[in-house]
Amino acid sequence: MNGSMKQEILFKMKSPYRDDFKIQGFRFGEGEKSVAIVGAMRGDEIQQQFTCSQVVKNLIELEKEGLILPGHEILVIPSANHFSMNINKRFWAMDNTDINRMFPGYDKGETTQRIAAALFEEVCGFKYGIQLASFYLPGEFIPHVRMMDTGFQNVKLAKKFGLPYVLIRKPRPYDTAVLNYNWQIFDTQAFSIYSGDTNTINKESAKVAWLSILRFLNSMKIIKKNIHDGFNSFVLSDVDLETVKSNQAGILYSMNSARDEVKKGDLLAKILDPFTGIVRSEIYSPVEGTIFFSHNHPLIHQNTVMYRIVKF
């Protein structure tokens, strides 16, 4: 018999005048540390917070029905930065530092280093780690699992989320301080789930994300849930993506978005003169494929990534 879900305060810190800052964890089951799931680490990751809350909701229901399988512990942390979310800031409310550039953290260091250290101590040692991640630029993605090529990644496992794509990418210099990288270095199989949106709630793409997590847990025999198999994920790396950049700046009139299939020569977008409305540039697809990422801000800078297309 599984124990019932425990809602715990994993980290608490006083603020000079605001309410206490608390990181809350929702712990399900007992036994092997099977999976840790982390939601919003930035204040604009509302979709990530929402998705994680739906994972918690589903796990509560599964637990009531005895469908969290014995011998597994699941820890879900929906929010690690609501001090910023509550005041519409992206990074840490006081000094604008990014918690997801502070891992593995330092418990005697600066505030966000301490938060990262406390968070990492809680989520370290799990067999699998799942982060609901966001991209640093405005745009929309096809839902996918992202892994870093650290030499420890397991692509077969990533496909069990049943999302359309698994993207393997080479770590960049800043990646050594992010959660995903440090999880892998400390022997956790780490996956970042990109549902497509960030500072808004898209119920459809959020559902794709939370169902993918439940599918993974089901596949790994951590929970028992009737769920379809999802996609036979296509595995790609950065070189498989064709980048389309803006050759002008202006108002972006986009005709295509993530998930759209396009042919070579299709008109993807127009860039308009912001004063006269005259078309400055028409952007055509250089390849046949599926749009993996699309810039979705109405203004566009010159020489900016507008689309990334998975080539057929």
Partner: peptide
Amino acid sequence: SEGLPVDEQLL
């Protein structure tokens, strides 16, 4: 020198 959306270059 890259264009910004409205009448300005990033220089």
